[in-house]
Design a protein around this nucleic acid. Structure first.
Length: 292
DNA sequence: AACAGGGGCAACCGCTATCGG
DNA sequence: GCCGATAGCGGTTGCCCCTGT
């Protein structure tokens, strides 16, 4: 494997005469000189039209290639190196919600690129999940109450996000040590909202044990007993308050500035749904795994 | 020491969305 | 509304290095 910070090789670079109307454009790995040119240009001029960037920076690259190089490698603030356990868990969580929308996952992992996450998922996590399916070893997620989710359940969720549309155990509100990712109806902005809940059934319904949630508009995500602020990716006027009191996550109300549990209703700002109705709607792709 | 296979990463490709004329 | 250019995204490929034999 290539070392994380190994310099890019300069050989193997190809040219392409089919693009750009006859001018031969370089392809393949970027040389340090090219990196320097692009970096200097971007730092001095900022991002503009990428075809202009390529031309003005004196690079024989297509704009698309420049953009990719900048975003995935040269852009300031990028983290290099291995993913931390926290990042890994967050990726797994987010993938369960967002599927292969790498750019949206990357937007919630500062310093990481969609390409990096995609590679990490395809090379590492996917394989680990695959391997873990044949053994009962230790790939798990911690739940808020200290229990863990076993891997076959996770695998079922993550190996193919498009098929994670059924639930054998969801016949109503989350009861017991569930981890439930409950998609709510689309709003007018074509955004999905999700509740991520771990709850312990109580006499009065669903008080206590709340683990937080993930929303498209940003929010708080419970993970392993800690709370993770998930930065908003898409602006929304439905969930707009970033000043969330973490303590409120432990309560049933006022989570994320406008999303409420109220008995058997879910309210997001002015929107409200009957949970029972939601649960009856078999078209909803429930993501559900149960703690053993 | 030499070789083959696999893993991991960077970059490319093709498609779709968006924007401006 | 149409069309071309550009941006952005996700899937795929190719290359290099490591590891096992």
């Amino acid at each position: 494997m290539r070392k994380p910070d190994a310099p890019a090789k300069t050989d193997g670079t190809k040219t392409n005469s089919t693009n750009g109307g006859g001018s031969r454009l370089r392809k393949g790995l970027w040389s340090p000189e090219e990196d320097e040119k692009l970096m200097n240009y971007m730092l001095g001029n900022g991002q503009g039209c990428w075809s202009e960037v390529a031309r003005n920076a004196g690079l024989q690259r297509c704009g698309k290639s420049c953009r990719l190089r900048w975003i995935n490698y040269l852009r300031p603030g990028l983290k290099r190196g291995a993913f931390s356990l926290q990042e890994e868990e967050l990726i797994i969580h987010l993938h369960s919600i967002l599927g292969n929308r790498w750019s949206q996952i990357a937007a919630r992992l500062p310093g990481r690129t969609d390409n990096e996450i995609k590679n990490f998922w395809n090379s590492t996590i996917k394989k680990r999940l695959k391997n873990s399916s044949s053994s009962s070893s230790s790939f798990f997620l911690n739940s808020g109450d200290g229990s863990s989710v076993n891997e076959p359940q996770i695998q079922a969720m993550y190996m193919d996000s498009s098929s994670s549309s059924s639930s054998s155990s969801m016949h109503g509100l989350p009861v017991g040590n569930h981890h439930d990712l409950v998609p709510l109806p689309k709003d007018g902005l074509e955004n999905y909202y999700y509740l991520h809940e771990t709850r312990v059934g109580t006499e009065n319904g669903y008080s206590g044990g709340g683990q937080g949630m993930v929303t498209e508009g940003g929010g708080i995500m419970g993970r392993g007993g800690e709370l993770v602020l998930v930065p908003p990716l898409v602006s929304t006027n439905l969930i707009a308050d970033d000043n969330v009191d973490v303590n409120e996550i432990q309560s049933d109300k006022a989570v994320g500035g406008g999303l409420f549990w109220e008995g058997e209703k879910v309210r997001v700002g002015e929107w409200e749904w009957e949970l029972g109705g939601l649960m009856k709607d078999v078209s909803f792709p429930f993501l559900d795994f149960q703690v053993e």
